[in-house]
Design a protein around this nucleic acid. Structure first.
Length: 278
DNA sequence: CAATATACCTGGATGC
DNA sequence: TGCATCCAGGTATATT
């Protein structure tokens, strides 16, 4: 589900509810996520602590406590966070629940369990955050994803440009949906080797990345199967997909049938006319 | 070091 | 209707 826009929409939703709240209770399912939920650390460092704010790095959410501890959450493929009155019926796949001092709960629901929950105690949070951040690529919305950065990237990588855009160690937050959409917007073939992309095309890719991600955030993200914001509302950027999931349908720009192929094991959609391979 | 394969899971869609 | 198969938004690790 969640790429950068969905995670950012989730963060903005959490910011409406969580800052200032005291966590009065923590509970968890017996299920293992990408890693085992750190029960004892939740009890010791999150319960009876107050929430300061929520930040995002790549597709990770950092719930910062006032004492400096951090609750790290990654939504994986199917993770969802919701804020609900405590008496709302719980659901299958609710794997971690924080009780709050205003009668609400934050619930982490994740059917596929590719999500991640970690707790960084205050005394080591700075180091843990640096370790995480070091493994992540540049933030697309921070202004660092410009033509010169991408052109330099192209000189180092011979993989197809879509694979490079999706490499989270190089660029943070671009998953399969938005990679497809960004490449269409820039009129660049996903199959072209990054090393063969011209500076002009890198410039268009930089612009398309910014516009696509910001537009998606403004639309509340994309709801494919089941993404919902923290308030339970779906996103609607999927209504604007130009190529993703449009195999065989006419290109909105030229009318030619959208092609679906596989690249690096991921579904890849493009228009062969508007995105000629070089 | 870079590219590829694989593993982690459930559930919805599709096909027989 | 039932059952098997395939596919899905992500990431880390092992292997070539």
């Amino acid at each position: 589900m969640p790429e950068l826009p969905e995670v950012e929409v989730t963060r903005q939703g959490l910011l409406q509810h969580l800052p200032g709240r005291l966590v009065t209770d923590v509970s968890w399912s017996g299920c293992r996520l990408r890693k085992t939920i750190p029960h004892q650390l939740l009890v010791d460092h999150i319960r009876e602590k107050r929430i300061l704010t929520i930040d995002r790095r790549a597709k990770y959410l950092l719930v910062r406590m006032t004492d400096g501890a951090v609750l790290l959450i990654h939504l994986g493929m199917t993770g969802k966070l919701s804020i609900l009155p405590a008496n709302t019926t719980r659901h299958r796949h609710d794997h971690c629940i924080l009780g709050l001092d205003d009668g609400h709960e934050m619930r982490f629901n994740d059917s596929r369990r590719f999500g991640l929950i970690e707790v960084w105690p205050a005394e080591q949070a700075r180091e843990d955050e640096q370790n995480l951040s070091r493994r992540q690529g540049v933030e697309p919305l921070d202004g660092a994803l410009n033509q010169s950065f991408l052109t330099a990237l192209g000189q180092k990588h011979s993989a197809p440009v879509k694979t490079v855009l999706m490499n989270s160690r190089l660029i943070a937050g671009i998953g399969n949906i938005y990679a497809n959409e960004i490449l269409f917007a820039a009129q660049v073939s996903p199959l072209t080797a990054a090393s063969k992309i011209s500076p002009e095309d890198w410039q268009r890719l930089a612009e398309a990345t910014l516009v696509t991600l910001q537009t998606a955030i403004a639309a509340g993200g994309s709801t494919i199967a089941d993404f919902l914001g923290t308030n339970g509302n779906p996103g609607y950027f999927q209504l604007y997909f130009q190529v993703y999931s449009r195999k065989g349908l006419p290109c909105f720009r030229c009318g030619r049938s959208i092609i679906k192929t596989s690249l690096g094991g991921r579904a890849t959609y493009y228009c062969a006319t508007c995105q000629p391979q070089k």
